[in-house]
Structures are given as C-alpha cells and as structure tokens.
Simulated assay, not measured.
Amino acid sequence: MNTRDDQAATRFALPEFLIGIGLLACAAVVLWQTLAIPVSPLYSKVGPTVFPYMTAIGLAVLSLLLIVAALRGGWQPQDEKETPVDWKSMAFVVAGLIANLVLIKPLGFTAASVVMFVLICYGFGSKHPLRDALIGLVLALAAYFGFAKALGVNIGAGFIETMLGA
C-alpha cells in the first residue's frame, strides 16, 4: 500500500533534474576544453590533460547520479521542497560570483576573490564582513601563491600581489 510519502518520493523532481543536466553540461564543457589542450608526444602517460579528464569524468558521474536521484523523486526531503527560496541571499551569492568575473582583470585574483568571498558569506547569513574579508584574503593569497610559485601559473596578479612582491 502506497502512502502519501511513498508517492511523493517516486515523483519526478524537475529542479533537481535540471541541476543534474546543468552539471552534465559543465562536464561536457570541461571535456571539450580538455580535448583542445595541445599535448606534446614527449609526454608518456601523464600529461597536462590527466586531471582535466579526471574532473570531466567525475562531474559526469556525479551528474548522472543526480539525474537518477531526480527521476526517483529527488534528494531533498519533502519539507525542504516546500521552503521558499530566499531571493535576497541568492542575489548576494550571484553578485559575488559576477563580481569575481568583473573584478579579476582590473584588481587581480586576490582582491576579486576577497570581494566574492565577502558577498557570498553575507548571502549565507554572515554579519561579520571584516572577519570574512580577512579569511578570504588568507585563502585567496594561499591559492594565488600556490598557483604562482608552486605551479608557475599566473592566475591574475593585481595590486595586492604586486605589493607583496609576486
């Protein structure tokens, strides 16, 4: 005998399905861009495309699991599905991501990442922007110098990196 909860659990969950499809599209883009990476025949088995291929495969597997879960009714409990979207918080998270894209070229990786971190923290409910900025600064500098010094990859030096002698 099916109860109401059993019926709800077997319904198709469109929002979760769309998330799975979006993630599958991201996996396809990663794969497409990985195929465009020039690989020298000097590399034996491990080259510059190993980690991007692993990322594409991981994203594809995760997206397929999310799609299957959506077809089985979704992964959210019923009471969470009825919770209204907090559009103000969502706007701050999206604003943080857009700010990073817009500011990375003129300000550099670190400053843009700090702005993004503070906006996203506020979107998630933080009321401590100074603390968030300091945490964001430490994380962004660690990421920047990890890429710049350890890997030799320039991910966007700006005024903060210049002041620190990058």
Rank of each mutant, 00 (worst) to 15 (best):
D6S: 11
K88F: 10
S89F: 03
A111D: 06
A150Y: 03
L18D: 07
A69P: 07
A140K: 05
L134I: 15
T110M: 10
Y144K: 01
I98C: 10
L134T: 06
L139A: 10
S113N: 07
L139I: 08
L23A: 08
L31I: 07
G156V: 01
K149A: 06
R4K: 13
A36N: 12
F159T: 01
T162W: 04
V115N: 03
Q76N: 08
S89P: 04
V46S: 06
L107S: 12
I104Q: 09
A150E: 02
A36R: 12
D6L: 09
L42V: 13
T34S: 09
F145I: 03
G156K: 00
A69N: 15
C121K: 11
Q76T: 03
L130M: 12
Q7V: 08
M116T: 09
L151Y: 07
D132L: 07
G47W: 03
N100R: 06
V39W: 08
Y144H: 05
A142S: 12
T3W: 00
G73S: 02
C26S: 08
D5A: 13
A140E: 04
K105Q: 15
S40M: 11
V138A: 13
N100W: 12
A8V: 03
A95Y: 07
K105R: 15
G22P: 05
I19L: 10
L97F: 11
G22A: 14
L151T: 04
L103P: 01
